[in-house]
C-alpha cells in the first residue's frame, strides 16, 4: 500500500504547512549558521528551486550563496551559470573558494534559449547547482524548472527582480537579500516547513570568515595576493 505520506513526501514542490521536516539536515550548508537554523533542511534545499530577490548584481544575492557553491564545486558535478548578467571574473570566484574546473558557463542568445538551457542543466543530473537570472517568468515555466530540479537533484538558484515577490511561485524557498552597511540583510519570504521570524542580518566579517575557512580547507598555502 502506498500511503498519502509516501506519495507526497518526495515532492519538493508541495509545501506542507506544518511539516515535521523529516529531511531536516539534508540541505546544503549555506555557510551562515544563523541562516541554516532557519531553513527547514538545515541549509539550501537539494533538488529544488531557490528564488533570491535582490534586484541585480552587487546587491548581495550571489554573495549569499558563494560559500555553498564553493562547497558544491568540490564534488563531481557542475556548478552551472546560465546566461549570467555580466562577465564572470575568475579571481573573484576562485577567491570565494570555488573549484573553477567544475564551473560551467552557459551563454544564451535570448531568454527563450536561456530558459531551455536552465531546464536542461537542472534536469541533467550533471549539475549540483544551477544559477539563472531569468527576467519575467510565467508560473508554468517556473513549475517546469522546479520539476527539472527535482529530477536532476540540482539546486536551482534563480536571481529575480524584487517585483517578483508578489507573483506566485512553486519554489519551496524564496528570500530577499540586501546589502546593509553592517552586512547582508536576509528576509525569508517563504520556506517549506518553517516560519520566517523576520529579517536576519548576516554580518560581513562573518562572510569573509566563511570564505577564509573555505580557502584554508582548500589551499592552505595560498593566501590572497597583497
Amino acid at each position: 500500500m502506498t500511503s498519502l505520506d509516501q506519495l507526497i513526501s518526495g515532492r519538493a514542490d508541495l509545501w506542507r504547512g506544518r511539516s515535521p521536516s523529516p529531511s531536516a539536515g539534508d540541505g546544503i550548508p549555506s555557510g551562515f549558521a544563523d541562516l541554516d537554523a532557519l531553513l527547514s533542511d538545515g541549509g539550501w534545499p537539494r533538488g529544488a528551486l531557490v528564488e533570491i530577490l535582490a534586484g541585480g548584481p552587487g546587491r548581495g544575492g550571489l554573495e549569499l550563496i558563494l560559500p555553498a557553491l564553493a562547497r558544491l564545486s568540490r564534488g563531481s558535478r557542475w556548478v552551472a551559470l546560465v546566461a549570467p548578467p555580466l562577465d564572470p571574473y575568475a579571481p573573484g570566484w576562485a577567491g570565494a573558494g570555488l573549484d573553477l574546473s567544475r564551473l560551467l558557463l552557459i551563454h544564451a542568445p535570448d531568454g527563450r534559449e536561456g530558459l531551455w538551457a536552465l531546464e536542461q542543466a537542472l534536469r541533467s543530473g550533471a549539475c549540483s547547482a544551477v544559477l539563472g537570472w531569468p527576467g519575467r517568468m510565467e508560473m508554468r515555466s517556473l513549475r517546469r524548472l522546479q520539476l527539472a530540479a527535482e529530477a536532476g537533484q540540482a539546486t536551482g538558484f534563480l536571481f529575480r527582480p524584487e517585483v517578483a515577490q508578489v507573483e506566485p511561485s512553486p519554489a519551496p524557498l524564496r528570500l530577499r537579500v540586501a546589502v546593509r552597511p553592517g552586512g547582508l540583510e536576509v528576509r525569508i519570504l517563504k520556506c517549506r516547513g518553517a516560519w520566517s521570524p523576520g529579517p536576519l542580518l548576516l554580518d560581513s566579517p562573518k562572510v569573509s570568515s566563511v570564505l577564509r575557512q573555505a580557502l584554508a580547507g582548500v589551499a592552505p598555502a595560498q593566501a590572497a595576493r597583497p
Binding site: P57, P85, D87, A90, P91, G92, S101, A221
Partner: peptide, 21 residues
C-alpha cells in the same frame, strides 16, 4: 573549454565575481 584544470597554485586571486568588459 569547460572542465579544464585551473592554473597552478600561486595565482589564486580575489576580487568581485563580475567584471565589466
Amino acid at each position: 573549454p569547460p572542465g579544464e584544470e585551473a592554473e597552478p597554485a600561486g595565482v589564486l586571486g580575489s576580487g568581485p565575481p563580475w567584471l565589466l568588459a
